[in-house]
């Protein structure tokens, strides 16, 4: 069942170039996709292609010089600015990329507690810390005191305690060692298995494929194709688009098999 539908979304920026001339630059154009409960949709594309902007557009936290057109629907209802304000943090949660998204002067336990929207905050935080194997004293730490893996688990915790049904994870894995990446991906799989819809933004197709159900190939501000994860196999012949094939074949191990066949 689809929870979130993006229909023909475009995002552009108004910019003042030299001589006070205004000019609009379109960074996302005519993008359509949907998130389904129980599924992970990986959004894969090069950096700078507009993936973060897509996430921010869904949450309604774009910078003030951005303009959007098109429709986003949540549970069939069109997302207006007002509805976005009500839903974010409650029904739609963001898992940001790095520890810089935590307030540097606030204890991390408190930051997780402010994300709790229903029920007792303290209890929810204790429970989620236990679940992610965060020791009790971590509660009183500041972000700068966390290791990479701990920061990751704290960021995931904020989404976990919010009770949101849609989780948008923006490049949650770069710069982490493989054990931590594995752990983070497992967390997202668990979210989906509980019935959430997960959008997993990444430029690393290889790790995304480990958990995703579908993959949206993103290029130059739009989605070229959305393919089931199992289509990424062999030579990539089951993929429709050149760019998707190229992306798949560019992986080191696939290159190796190609050479082997030749």
């Amino acid at each position: 069942m689809s929870i979130l539908e993006v229909d023909n979304l475009s995002v552009s920026f108004k910019q003042y170039t030299s001589g006070l001339r205004q000019h609009t630059q379109e960074v996302i154009s005519n993008l359509s996709m949907e998130l389904v409960s129980g599924e992970i949709l990986a959004v894969v594309g090069a950096s700078g292609s507009g993936k973060s902007l897509l996430a921010h557009a869904i949450l309604g936290i774009l910078p003030s010089n951005a303009q959007t057109s098109g429709k986003i629907r949540f549970d069939g209802e069109v997302l207006t600015t007002k509805l976005q304000e009500q839903l974010r943090g409650k029904e739609i949660a963001l898992v940001p990329q790095s520890v810089s998204f935590l307030d540097p002067l606030m204890r991390v336990g408190a930051q997780v507690r402010t994300s709790v929207r229903k029920g007792k905050a303290k209890e929810a935080q204790k429970k989620v810390f236990e679940r992610y194997h965060l020791k009790e004293e971590v509660e009183n730490m500041y972000p700068f005191q966390l290791s990479g893996g701990m920061a990751r688990r704290i960021l995931v915790s904020t989404a976990m305690v919010s009770g949101a049904r849609v989780i948008i994870a923006d490049e949650p894995t770069p710069g982490l060692d493989s054990v931590v990446i594995k752990e983070a991906l497992t967390n997202f799989r668990e979210f989906a298995d509980q019935g959430c819809a997960v959008m997993l933004i990444s430029h690393d197709i290889e790790s995304a494929l480990q958990v995703a159900d579908k993959v949206a190939v993103f290029y130059g501000g739009t989605v070229l194709e959305i393919a089931p994860a199992e289509n990424f196999e062999g030579n990539g012949d089951r993929l429709q688009h050149h760019y998707s094939k190229a992306l798949w074949r560019a992986l080191p191990q696939n290159d190796f098999t190609c050479e082997f066949k030749n």
Binding site: R88, G89, A93, S100, F101, D103, P104
Partner: peptide, 13 residues
């Protein structure tokens, strides 16, 4: 305009 305020807004603050 910092990351942590963007994230706070994303959480509904």
């Amino acid at each position: 305009s910092s990351d942590y305020v963007v994230f706070a807004r994303a959480r509904g603050e």
